[in-house]
Amino acid sequence: MWRHIASNALTLFIVLLFLIGGAVVWGSGQYSATGPLTQAICLRVESGSNMRIVSNTLDKQNAVTSPTIFRIGADYSEKAGQLKAGSFLVEAGASMEQIIDQITTSGQSTCGTEVVYRVGVNSTTVLVRELDPATNHFVEIALFNPSEEDAPVAYVEVKEQADTRYRAAIAEGVTSWQVVDALNNLDLLGEDYGDLPTEGSLAPDSYEFDPGDSVASIIDRMSASQSRILANAWENRAEGLPLASPEEAMILASIVEKETAVADERRQVASVFVNRLNLGMRLQTDPTVIYGITEGEGVLGRGLRQSELRRETPWNTYVIPALPPTPIANPGRAAIEAALNPDDTDYIFFVADGTGGHAFATTLDEHNRNVARWREIEAERAAN
């Protein structure tokens, strides 16, 4: 009798082992399998949250097949205690394993609300936007000029959210003074920057930061990036350029940056200035005259006077015979590469053509016709 009972118990134990093993295999498959989510979502993990709360949130959004397996997987992988606060973009079909990796690894938000401080040549604006997971495109919530308008409620509210992301977007062609002034006036950053970086030494780009970061931390990143861009462009420069050093290349690049915002003609504009340097001609470019007046501190805000075109300053290329002594702005990568790899042309003149671009010429007669046409366009616009 006891032998029979023992035999049945052993059989039951073996069956249970098989059932448990099968359950483990099934659960493991569910954990790593493609998830049920049909459209990407933005998962917000609050500070102080836990895996139970997160798993229930995912279950309500139909992003996991089982919140229990989700929690067991987090425990088994020893990641349950590594949960990070933030907003995370969960792609359609993401497995529970992938989701846990997302919310426990870096803690850097990949979706949700973002505030962008856009430092432009003429003004600084603040953009509040939110990523739409379904389209993976940002939706504008608010846009304002902090020097002219009060902050909207949307901006105040998102600043109180722990998972809001922040970035400073620096436009091509801004001066170092404009960058430092804008960042020093940004209320979310910590210690101000007291020095003025060398003109041209800051790479225009988008830089993410955390509230309380120092202005210097962003300036240092901009400077390091610009150094890398210039070094690479200088190493891959065209042969025979009338540029003696990377510093001269940066000066030319800054002029190209200020002369055109049309990407397709940067190399043509650069070719004009290279041809003029090779011929010993003055560059005769208005942006250098403007820099001689403002020295990069703000915007001139009006047209140039004839007296200013004749006034001798270190940057007035209508007067000085070559490049000015310093860059006149911080050029972007494209302008730097254009200055060091210009188009092969015979152009030595250009003037605005009324479309936002320029008309180029190889002879003075052709250039004079282009200038006359531009003056007609200006007169027509003034009449309207």
Score class of each variant (00 low, 15 high):
326 T>G: 04
140 E>Q: 11
47 S>W: 00
369 R>L: 10
193 Y>D: 07
362 T>K: 07
131 L>W: 11
169 A>S: 14
251 I>W: 12
90 V>P: 01
48 G>N: 10
135 T>C: 07
348 I>C: 00
384 N>D: 14
258 K>G: 10
8 N>T: 08
253 A>W: 15
128 V>F: 04
349 F>S: 00
150 D>R: 10
74 A>V: 06
279 L>V: 01
200 G>T: 06
280 G>I: 04
366 E>L: 00
11 T>I: 02
125 T>K: 15
68 T>D: 03
153 V>F: 09
231 A>M: 09
83 L>G: 11
70 F>R: 06
347 Y>Q: 06
81 G>K: 14
233 A>Q: 04
57 T>D: 15
251 I>L: 14
232 N>T: 06
44 R>G: 01
42 C>R: 11
152 P>G: 10
72 I>D: 01
319 V>Q: 08
75 D>I: 13
381 R>A: 15
167 R>T: 05
258 K>C: 10
19 L>D: 09
251 I>H: 12
372 A>P: 05
367 H>M: 00
327 P>K: 09
43 L>K: 11
196 L>E: 13
23 A>R: 08
354 G>V: 05
127 L>E: 14
98 Q>Y: 00
55 S>Q: 05
247 E>R: 07
263 A>L: 09
99 I>W: 04
181 D>I: 01
92 A>E: 13
164 T>H: 00
210 D>V: 07
52 R>A: 04
29 G>D: 09
188 L>G: 06
294 T>V: 04
37 L>C: 08
350 F>T: 03
348 I>N: 00
153 V>Q: 15
121 V>S: 12
113 T>M: 05
137 H>I: 11
21 G>F: 13
50 N>F: 03
151 A>R: 06
369 R>V: 03
213 D>K: 13
383 A>H: 10
258 K>H: 04
87 S>F: 08
71 R>A: 02
275 N>I: 07
369 R>C: 04
161 Q>V: 11
24 V>T: 06
378 E>H: 07
291 Y>R: 01
376 E>N: 12
266 R>P: 02
226 Q>P: 12
247 E>T: 12
22 G>E: 12
64 V>R: 08
234 W>H: 06
180 V>M: 09
4 H>G: 01
188 L>K: 03
40 A>V: 10
8 N>S: 12
49 S>E: 15
206 S>R: 14
127 L>Y: 05
156 V>H: 14
27 G>H: 02
69 I>Q: 02
307 S>T: 10
376 E>W: 03
111 C>E: 08
211 P>H: 09
128 V>I: 13
58 L>D: 02
21 G>E: 12
77 S>M: 10
184 N>A: 05
183 L>S: 05
246 P>Q: 03
298 G>N: 12
200 G>M: 06
40 A>Y: 09
264 D>E: 09
107 G>L: 11
45 V>F: 11
350 F>A: 07
162 A>S: 14
237 R>L: 08
92 A>V: 09
82 Q>C: 03
262 V>R: 04
230 L>F: 03
288 T>W: 03
181 D>H: 14
160 E>Q: 14
85 A>F: 03
260 T>I: 02
228 R>K: 13
148 E>Q: 15
306 Q>R: 15
74 A>I: 01
309 L>Y: 02
173 G>D: 07
306 Q>M: 09
312 E>C: 05
337 E>L: 07
